[in-house]
Amino acid sequence: MSWQEICDLAGGISLLLGSTIALVGAIGLARLPDIFGRMHAATKPQTLGLLLILVGLALNVRTWASVATLFIVVGAQALTAPVTAHMLGRASYRTGASEDDLLHHDELGEDYRRMTEQQATGDEA
């Protein structure tokens, strides 16, 4: 088993692992009841799955050009996934996605109420 074959095998295994994690994330996305739960399934497993798939690809295609582009893809995905989930969570909270009884404790709502009360008292003073 020369080191090329070992690299190919390791790449194949990590690619398989990455696609299983992506499948688990997709199952979570399909089954979870609330958008806040779905955000977990949409960001973490997908980013890790993509990272493993790209590591598998880098192990199989052993050229520096491909490894450089894969760094860009993984970096872009790792940086943008949290921002996307944050923006979607903020928009869905504001457009009333948290009215149903899935949330046990709503700190953001209390902050909103305190903020509006302060504004009200501020206007009177």
């Binding site: 690619l15 997709a26 996305l29 958008i35 997908q46 980013t47 979607l88």
Partner: peptide, 21 residues
Amino acid sequence: TNLDRALSLDVLIVIVTGIIA
């Protein structure tokens, strides 16, 4: 809601990137 669709389309793009790989 449409936000669920935006989220899942973002996931779809990640999966298509994996398929391209």
